Amino acid sequence: MNSIIRRAGSDISEPFRRFLEGDLGSWLRVEEYREDGTMVVKAEVPGIDPDKDVDITLVGNELQIDVRHEEKTEHKDKRGYRTEFRYGNFSRTIALPAPVDEKDIRASYNDGVLEVRIPVPDDPTGASRKIPVARGQAGGMTGTGPEAGPATQT
């Protein structure tokens, strides 16, 4: 299964890839939308310290969000003592629609919600454009040279 995923590369969406790899437990669930030329990514991550538990990095046209979470509860009564730990690392990679400068990205944490704002153009340069098709020889080649392909005998 992993060889199939490696061959497919980035053509597989992250949720589906994580499902196939059995890695849904460490997947950071996000809300993603556009607002006035800004891409907004929100993740509900209560009980963290954003200064030490959150890493946000920009790699090419992808935003990587990593969150570490540790929660400890204790209960003491006449019959004994009980403590429970919940912890884990959660991550998410978000494909950005256009190149951005990391200096323009803003992140905030308020009431358990991590919010990342990325300014992106409304019509990114990566938008689809129609390519005209010329009739005749491919690419306007004259039929000579190595790019013309192998010679045929008649």
Rank of each mutant, 00 (worst) to 15 (best):
H75V: 10
A43R: 00
P132R: 06
P146S: 09
R34C: 08
G143W: 07
G60C: 03
A151M: 07
T144I: 07
K78W: 15
H75Y: 15
G139Q: 03
G9C: 02
Y87W: 13
I48H: 00
N2H: 11
T144N: 08
R79L: 12
G145T: 02
S108M: 09
R17S: 10
E84N: 13
K42I: 03
I48C: 01
P124W: 07
T57L: 08
P50T: 02
Y109D: 01
F16S: 07
R18S: 09
T125V: 11
W27Y: 15
T142M: 12
G9V: 02
E70L: 15
T38K: 10
H75A: 09
R18E: 07
G47L: 10
G136N: 04
K42P: 01
T152M: 09
R92N: 06
S10I: 04
D53Y: 05
P124V: 04
N110K: 15
G139N: 09
E84A: 14
E84Y: 12
R7Q: 13
A127C: 02
N110R: 15
Q153A: 08
A107G: 06
S91V: 01
E14F: 03
E21P: 01
E71N: 14
I105N: 00
S128A: 13
K78M: 13
D111Q: 11
T125L: 07
P121G: 03
G149M: 07
V67R: 00
G126D: 06
P150K: 11
P121N: 05
V30Y: 04
K52H: 13
L24A: 06
T93P: 00
N110M: 08
A43P: 01
K52C: 07
A107N: 06
I48L: 03
D104F: 03
S128G: 12
T142C: 05
Q137Y: 13
I65L: 09
E70T: 15
R117M: 08
E21Q: 14
N2T: 09
P15R: 01
G25D: 13
G149H: 08
I56C: 00
F85D: 11
G60Q: 03
D49V: 03
M141H: 11
T152V: 13
T73S: 15
A8D: 03
M39N: 00
V133T: 11
A98L: 01
K72Q: 13
S10F: 10
W27I: 02
D23I: 01
K78S: 14
L20H: 04
N61H: 11
D111S: 11
G143S: 05
R82H: 12
A43T: 00
A134Q: 09
